[in-house]
Design a binder for these strands. Structure first.
Lengths: 135, 135
DNA sequence: TTTAAAATAGAGTAAAATAGTCCTAATTAA
DNA sequence: TTAATTAGGACTATTTTACTCTATTTTAAA
């Protein structure tokens, strides 16, 4: 699997936040989407650190979008939510665990790199706007 | 991550088997590629069940390719090695774990399905031959 | 025909990643 | 000043991945 719950929760949350005209707290999002609150909070905090969301503390606080959905890619959202970039295969990026030695020296490596590149490109060109707008 | 060690070991093994003119045993492959033998054996057995490899028991036995590399896709190899189809996201295929309810009813779902389709297509059109032939 | 080399099968274990919890600050609108 | 809310970090539980072990079956070769 390429993506985990973190990305799923992030996308579902962004969808709700996008449609709201005022900040929404993690408590409310948690209830509305049936997602564990503390876990969701971490994800929202990550999105805030990456400036996708802006947070307001204190009473009547919550999260709101901090960026035009057309200016943020799925790649960035996923990277923030997961805390790391999405990869098809560890052996594409790390050579020290490859049984065959360093990356680039095995016959498979260039194809995996190309595959990774295609996935990256797709996710980088897919904007949040495209996901959130109704068809 | 989309793929696991199982796929990595499968591809590396297929590369060695492809270049050999006689069957190679799991023991030899294990040593040559520095992969745990019992674990590798399971993977090779899966590829055999899927008719990608043919096995010969007994002395001087081992595994050989059972199919023309141009006729087998990466998608099939991965599915066999992993024991399941590669997925970007569980929520694309299973609705009962989606916090938002059934699949297809959330705004995100169609985009994930499209993404999954693109990955499937890429892997289905990439043949083992393309991977194994030297450039 | 015996033997040793191999694949097959299935249950079990260890390690790592994912998913989630809990508690304690730090802020801030009301 | 207080209650609502985000922030942060350490911790735990669950699931998946990555393997291991043992026993069985098959078969080429001596």
């Amino acid at each position: 699997m390429l993506l985990t719950r973190a990305s799923e929760y992030a996308l579902l949350s962004l969808n709700v936040i996008y449609k709201s005209d005022k900040p929404i707290g993690s408590e409310q999002l948690s209830k509305e989407l049936n997602i564990p609150k503390s876990f969701l909070a971490k994800i929202l905090q990550n999105l805030t650190k990456g400036n996708v969301l802006v947070s307001h503390r204190g009473a009547q606080g919550g999260y709101a979008l901090n960026i035009d959905p057309k200016d943020i890619s799925l790649y960035d959202i996923i990277s923030l939510a997961e805390g790391k970039k999405p990869t098809v295969f560890d052996c594409v990026s790390y050579s020290d665990t490859c049984p065959n030695g360093a990356i680039g020296t095995c016959a498979i490596s260039p194809f995996l790199a190309k595959f990774q590149f295609k996935i990256d490109l797709y996710l980088q060109n897919l904007t949040l706007k495209e996901l959130l707008d109704e068809r």
